[in-house]
Amino acid sequence: MNRSGILVVLYFVIYLLVQVMLFKQLVLFNTAFCFVYVAFILLLPIETNSMALMVVAFVLGISVDVFYDSLGLHAMSLVLVAYVRNFWLKLITPQGGYDAGQGPTLTVNGVQWFVVYSLPLVFIHHGTLFFAEAGGFGIFWYTMLKVMTSLMFTMTVILFLQYFSIRRRR
């Protein structure tokens, strides 16, 4: 296995552990959750094959599910994100295209592009997750409140981590 492969496995383990050890305990106002592990799928290299992406998303989702006692729920949402991701990347290609071998990160493409890229995908993930958990649209507004507050929480943490990684690189 080459160096980047090992890094991917390492990141996988780190994201999983941080999610189930730290962010699982952190729920703000009883409605805002942080599902930071979505960033792992968002930040994989741009050329990643969508089949591989979905398989990785499935494995990560199931692993999170085991800790959340919700077998299938997180996996379902994350596989959807993995499937949509490459289409969305193609759609919002900046002028001049992406640099080869780079991840779709804040450092490379700027904060504005990164928010446009990640916000809808995180929204899809949270929307699928909470509505599937609620078993439909029966408690629509309360579920929507959960989706929106969690979206803000997750996005804040993802952006913070991105800035943090820029700092360290310099």
Partner: peptide, 11 residues
């Protein structure tokens, strides 16, 4: 197929 499998697990 992955989504159907996940939904089956979840339900």
């Amino acid at each position: 197929s992955l989504e159907i499998f996940c939904a089956w697990l979840w339900v």
